[in-house]
Design a protein around this nucleic acid. Structure first.
Lengths: 211, 211
DNA sequence: TGGTGTGAACAACTTCACAGCG
DNA sequence: CGCTGTGAAGTTGTTCACACCA
């Protein structure tokens, strides 16, 4: 296979495969077929083979995939064979809970700085030792701490201006928890985590399929 | 238009349209064209017209859409012309932050109960007045409080068993924050909010487009 | 033999282009 | 005249079916 266009959805599924594979590895499994992995991930077996084939030939015909190797390959594909320094912007309820949340560090994402705009918070120290900086120091701190990803946990009204500041600071990966669509230049990649949309979708399904 | 199959993506966009429309309404705008709304939401104008046409004819040719009416129509479509009682399962960092987070109530989702499995937490009262119940009381409390949606904010390892208990209790809408794929029967609708997947996607983009 | 890798068929979603109506 | 509503075309993503190989 040459240089196919890779569906976004395929990338997201790789993360899901990794989780399943790591679980299997813990249980001591060495090799797995696309069929069994598919069942565990709730997808189609052909989907898995195609997703992996976008990036190379990782399987052994008649056998399956060696789990240890496959985990390493997928991590390399996704750029997870390293750690990523990230910054939290907005240290309110959600922001501080996310910083304390163990899932980031477990996957190699390290909160290297935190920012807010509230004068009462600036200079305070978070439980994990991070000092809260003023948002105006973003560019300086981003450089100092080698930060590549920004997490926006501000109110919706502030999201766009924070995004602008992140981009000026040279950050071009943004995880946006604010319920707002933010506009960014081509070079920057934004992912939205918007649970109001998800809830609305649930409400729709409950409403249409008999409360 | 008769009974077309409605793309999931269209439903999700309706939430985005509502947000933009409510903002416009606050600013005093009365009518808007699909073109202008599209620009604000970052989508194609035809997309908006098609999304809305799945559900009826809400526009006026040569004019556009009356904002007040359109908001009401979309809310009715999504089942947002009422409030929804929801339950939080897992009152850790993330769970308690979400309960305190204002976005749920703002959109008509009311936390009516909270559950955990940690004996030290059972019986404690949250800042908003909710008492933390033991997960084993789920079915009873769900009935008493008329809960239709469950929010899972437990560790991944507990997610599936919590989902099972929710379904037994008669809850068939689940918002899952745990990084795990959960299996549910047809009748139940699950939405996953998995920021590790989103971060991995950002890492991939940063890695492939020159750090 | 059994499971991968993959072209081809299929399905889903998006955008175009324009008829039709206020 | 301008903007909606919509069939048709285009695009993207998924599944099938089987050649191929350890």
């Amino acid at each position: 296979m040459k240089f196919p266009k890779i569906p976004m959805a395929a990338i997201n599924r790789l993360s899901i495969y990794i989780r399943a594979l790591e679980e299997l590895e813990e249980q001591g499994t060495k090799v797995i077929s696309s069929e069994r992995l598919a069942k565990q991930c709730g997808v189609n077996p052909a989907q898995i083979r195609k997703d992996l084939a976008y990036f190379g030939e990782f399987g052994v015909r008649g056998v399956g995939y060696r789990i240890e190797d496959l985990i390493r390959e997928i991590k390399e594909i996704l750029g997870l064979d390293r750690t990523w320094n990230i910054a939290m912007i907005g240290v309110g309820n959600l922001g501080s809970a996310l910083i304390r949340h163990g899932n980031f560090i477990k996957h190699g994402y390290v909160f290297a700085a935190a920012f807010d705009i509230d004068p009462h918070k600036i200079g305070k120290r978070l439980p994990n030792g991070l000092v809260i900086h003023h948002i105006d120091d973003l560019e300086k701190v981003v450089k100092e701490c080698d930060i590549h990803i920004g997490v926006i946990a501000t109110p919706a009204s502030a999201a766009q201006s924070v995004a602008n500041q992140l981009i000026i600071a040279g950050v071009n990966g943004i995880l946006n928890f604010a319920p707002a669509q933010i506009q960014v230049p081509e070079c920057c990649h934004v992912e939205n985590v918007d649970f109001t949309i998800k809830l609305d979708s649930i409400a729709y399904h409950l409403s249409t399929t008999g409360t």
